[in-house]
Simulated scan of single mutants.
Amino acid sequence: MPKLISDPFFTIIKAGISGISIPDHFDLMIEKPHPLCLLAANQLQDYLNNQSDWVHNFGLDRQSAGTIIGKMFGVLVVRNQNQEVGFLAAFSGKLAGRNQHTHFVPPVFDLLTENSFLNVGMEALTKMNEEIKDLEEQETPQTDPQILQLKKARKAYSVALQNRIFEHYHFLNQAGEEKNLIEIFQNIGYKNPPAGAGECAAPKLLQYAFQHNMKPIAMAEFWWGQSPKSNFWKHGHFYPCCKEKCEPIFKHMLAGIA
């Protein structure tokens, strides 16, 4: 008998699913979530309401401290190598100041690792900013060329750092083909990927599924917490994946399954 493969991020759906049909093709939520995604999301929301693993102020409790940051969460219903149907969960960006938490798949690339090139790069940019500020406070004609030169150097360094970040985000599809963010977005006519591309919940979920030979069945995302003033998201409501950041990535990741 083959050995069963366990996975720390694969969660069995507690509610019975025997009466729910498994879709023949991958179901990416457009208007409403697949019934399997609803069950998975309800289970995840129950965890969010009752967990004590971390502290994050979603703006749902007046007694919570810290900046209010609502968050998009995603569930991906999959069939694992043991032929079990369950789900993976992910959050967009960071949660409670961290990229990695129990029950949630890891980021495609973790920018927050200690001594990472991003941390080193941000320290260099901070130093440039301080030098520019010091020169500007002197307010002498002699410092103007230095300030201009430093600002040009800062811009070039910042662009190079951002491109290096994009190059470290590698995305798989079902066929095992891999592309980084720059390749993905340039293939459809973008000069550069938008900031934050690859940090949404959906690409994280698909990446983990493909890396661990799980078959994606259906996926949906919901908003949890207060909405930022610049958006219209409502707590607990489901929304389709974003067009600007995710659709270009999906063209690559969902090739052959959607």
Score class of each variant (00 low, 15 high):
residue 43 Q to S: 08
residue 90 A to V: 03
residue 87 F to M: 02
residue 258 A to Q: 13
residue 1 M to P: 04
residue 211 Q to A: 13
residue 213 N to Q: 15
residue 102 T to I: 11
residue 64 S to R: 05
residue 223 W to S: 02
residue 93 G to K: 02
residue 32 K to R: 15
residue 13 I to L: 11
residue 73 F to E: 01
residue 199 E to R: 11
residue 48 L to D: 09
residue 222 F to H: 03
residue 126 T to A: 10
residue 101 H to G: 08
residue 231 N to R: 11
residue 200 C to F: 14
residue 160 A to L: 10
residue 228 P to C: 06
residue 214 M to R: 03
residue 127 K to R: 13
residue 66 G to E: 03
residue 185 F to D: 01
residue 17 I to R: 06
residue 95 L to C: 05
residue 79 R to G: 04
residue 84 E to F: 10
residue 194 P to F: 13
residue 5 I to W: 12
residue 111 L to Q: 13
residue 94 K to S: 04
residue 256 G to V: 10
residue 147 I to F: 12
residue 10 F to G: 02
residue 176 G to Q: 10
residue 42 N to L: 06
residue 69 I to T: 12
residue 46 D to E: 15
residue 94 K to Y: 08
residue 192 N to G: 01
residue 36 L to G: 06
residue 244 E to F: 09
residue 61 D to H: 10
residue 162 Q to R: 15
residue 158 S to R: 15
residue 241 C to H: 13
residue 20 I to K: 05
residue 151 K to G: 02
residue 228 P to S: 08
residue 66 G to C: 05
residue 20 I to N: 05
residue 205 L to D: 07
residue 145 P to K: 03
residue 181 L to T: 03
residue 245 K to H: 14
residue 258 A to I: 15
residue 135 L to D: 04
residue 218 A to K: 04
residue 29 M to W: 09
residue 99 N to R: 00
residue 161 L to S: 08
residue 149 Q to I: 02
residue 200 C to K: 03
residue 93 G to C: 06
residue 82 N to S: 05
residue 226 Q to T: 04
residue 18 S to F: 11
residue 145 P to N: 00
residue 13 I to G: 08
residue 74 G to L: 08
residue 200 C to I: 03
residue 241 C to P: 00
residue 250 F to M: 13
residue 108 V to M: 01
residue 91 F to P: 01
residue 220 A to F: 12
residue 114 E to D: 15
residue 191 K to W: 08
residue 73 F to Y: 14
residue 29 M to H: 10
residue 165 I to M: 11
residue 178 E to F: 03
residue 257 I to S: 08
residue 177 E to Y: 14
residue 54 W to M: 06
residue 250 F to Q: 04
residue 113 T to I: 14
residue 137 E to R: 14
residue 109 F to T: 00
residue 66 G to R: 09
residue 172 L to V: 01
residue 193 P to E: 02
residue 192 N to A: 11
residue 239 Y to G: 07
residue 249 I to G: 03
residue 143 T to P: 02
residue 60 L to Q: 10
residue 104 F to K: 00
residue 146 Q to Y: 13
residue 221 E to W: 13
residue 214 M to G: 07
residue 133 K to P: 00
residue 243 K to P: 07
residue 133 K to E: 12
residue 39 L to I: 04
residue 202 A to G: 06
residue 113 T to D: 10
residue 227 S to D: 03
residue 27 D to W: 15
residue 244 E to R: 12
